[in-house]
């Protein structure tokens, strides 16, 4: 899927951040025209989200999340061994509370890299060192989409 800015006849670029709404399992991805700066958001319904999540690729480009062994199996097995879940590299830049980690683990792996980046950028802009669930709620509210 590609997006074109009609006014500029230029390809729109995928932005490297995105959100995942746990309630309705919808993804919000933004695309921007690098010429005029016009931005749009692509919103998926849960069925579209589920389908893409099974392909084993990551939206916004491959991240540390998807490059770990058995990423898809580890993140989609309802009852998988703990080692599989722990194989995902942790971010050293900030500290995550267990609640925030658990919540992030529910984000499908193919957009988890993007969602992580969104939350970390938000925390860094505000000088926050510990990411908790309240901050994640704030991200969703402030970044919107």
């Amino acid at each position: 899927m590609k997006f074109l800015c009609i006014a500029c006849d230029e390809q729109m670029e995928t932005q490297k951040d995105g959100l995942f709404n746990e309630t309705n399992r919808s993804i919000s991805l933004s695309f921007k025209c690098k010429k005029c700066g016009y931005a749009i958001a692509m919103l998926t319904n849960r069925f579209e989200t589920e389908f893409v999540s099974k392909l084993g690729v990551e939206m916004g480009g491959q991240s540390e999340v998807g490059s770990g062994p058995m990423s898809m199996v580890g993140s989609t097995l309802a009852q998988g061994k703990e080692e599989l879940k722990q194989s995902e590299p942790a971010s050293n830049a900030v500290e995550w509370t267990q609640g925030a980690k658990d919540r992030m683990a529910k984000v499908p792996f193919f957009v988890r890299g993007m969602a992580k980046k969104t939350v970390i950028s938000f925390a860094e802009e505000r000088g926050v060192k510990v990411i908790d669930e309240a901050l994640m709620d704030e991200v969703r509210e402030k970044v919107g989409m």
Binding site: M1, T14, Q62
Partner: peptide
Amino acid sequence: MKTYDDLATDGGSNIIGQVVNQR
């Protein structure tokens, strides 16, 4: 207006590149 084939990449996700990498 450009068509799908005129756009060289997918805009940043590089899905094809990821599939090639998997292969």
